[in-house]
Design a binder for these strands. Structure first.
Length: 119
RNA sequence: UCGGUAAAAUGGGCAGUCGCGGAUAUACUUUAGUAUAGACGAGGAAAGUCCGGGCAUCACACGGCAGAGUAACGGCUAACGGCCGCCGAGGGUAACCUUAGGGAAAGUGCAACAGAGAUAUACCGCCGUUUUUUACGGUAAGGGUGGAAAGGCGAGGUAAGAGCUCACCGGGGUAUUGGAGACAAUACUGCCAUGUAAACCCUACUUGAUGCAACACCGAAUGGGGAGUUUGCCGGACAGCGAUUUAUUCGCAACCCCGAAGGGUGGCUUGAACCUUGUGGCAACGCAAGGUCUAGAUAGAUGAUUGCCUUAAACGACAAAACCCGGCUUACAGUUUUACCGACUUA
RNA sequence: GGAGACGUAUCGAAGUGGUCAUAACGGGGCUGACUCGAAAUCAGUUAGGGAGCAAUCCCCCGCGAGUUCGAAUCUCGCCGUCUCCG
């Protein structure tokens, strides 16, 4: 899977906010739910409160880079929306990746052998 | 050496690994896609959206009014409210800096409070007449109020005073000379009247409206689209039907929404472009020759990590193109260069 | 990307050049009256910063410049908040 599909429509985001599960962290918020599309789809929200255009773009890139390395180990197909928080822009992608793995591990979204390797 | 003024440049570089957008090339196949390789890939302000254009659509005989904008003068420019030069005014010892800088005897309005009086005045005072008081007349030198009080100051003059007269300064008008012009200098004349036009207004000049979400094309009615719903979580049952078994996927079915909503292509980057050299001009800028192709995404591409080098340091400032240009304004860590001014020291 | 509007005490909001904004007016807070107590009602009071022993004085209408004798008001430039256009 060279690249992943992104969520674009407002309705998709609305569906996840209302019906999905939410996991929070000071650096990141994740909404997810299982889908039937046979592929993981991702949406990233960087609101106006994050800062100016440079900071919003950087937050988006860091989240996408972290997700790129995590997506291989996800067991199952999910629609996921990540919401950047104001502290995201100061973090590196390695830290965000660790946060993302912890969040998914707590929700049992990762493959079992991958969990063992992580520990 | 210290302090200052003005202008300009830079905004780290190279390499490895994982990854992003992607012109184009090659191969395969059914026009369309798949696979591989892959040039190139954010700024000096890309920002604010404050001006001016290109471009596009709509409107439009011509002229004027209204509305909006600009304002010394000469030039540059596609154009400008920008830039250059210059004049006036103000500031600085100086280098230099600031300047919305037309018209107040075309007209109207406003000028609180204070003050006797605010565009016209006699409160105190001074002088004269009158018997003192009082009253009348003359007077703007002095007092006090105010941002502003009848050009300023000195001398003459006078009953006391007054451009009433004179010298100097300031302002207005006329003439001459210099200059492309704003304007400056000189001479004569003669004091006629506060401020405000970023109040209405007058004069001169400019000005149709909307903006790439402009606009053009493709794509629909015995059909098409929304990767829609038929799964919130835990335990049990059922999983709409079928292809293979739970799940997933695919096909079919049912339900719901839309009636161009939504999607695609062009516009979209070769341009008042950039670099070098020469040349005209004080300069802004123009001209000529040669060379170069330098983002084009569409929820929006530049990140992560490692090493080396330059460096005082480089993890470090401000900050991301969205049709494209010319300016203005605002933000900005650190570094470098050039010219000039003042003070001190040495030769 | 484009087009607009608004910033005034704790909140809403008036004031469009002039007596210190007595920061009007309303809401809120505090105090008192009424009540056994409360609500309602009535009356009074209530922003911040700086200087000073105090009396008192100065600054402040989002911020900074300018015009004017004088600016919350007029002009210019920034900052912030909100709305509209698919």
């Amino acid at each position: 899977m060279s690249h992943f599909v992104t969520l674009k429509l407002n309705g998709d985001f609305r569906r996840l906010y209302n019906r999905g599960r939410a996991v929070t962290n000071p650096a990141l918020v994740m909404y997810y739910s299982k889908n039937r599309a046979g592929i993981c789809r991702i949406g990233i929200t960087t609101g106006k409160k994050i800062g100016n255009a440079v900071e919003r773009n950087r937050s988006r890139r860091v989240i996408r880079e972290a997700f790129r390395s995590v997506v291989k180990d996800i067991d199952g197909n999910f629609d996921i929306v990540f919401v950047a928080r104001s502290r995201t822009k100061y973090q590196k992608s390695t830290y965000i990746e660790k946060v993302m793995r912890d969040m998914m591990h707590s929700e049992n979204m990762l493959k079992i052998e991958s969990n063992g390797a992580e520990e």
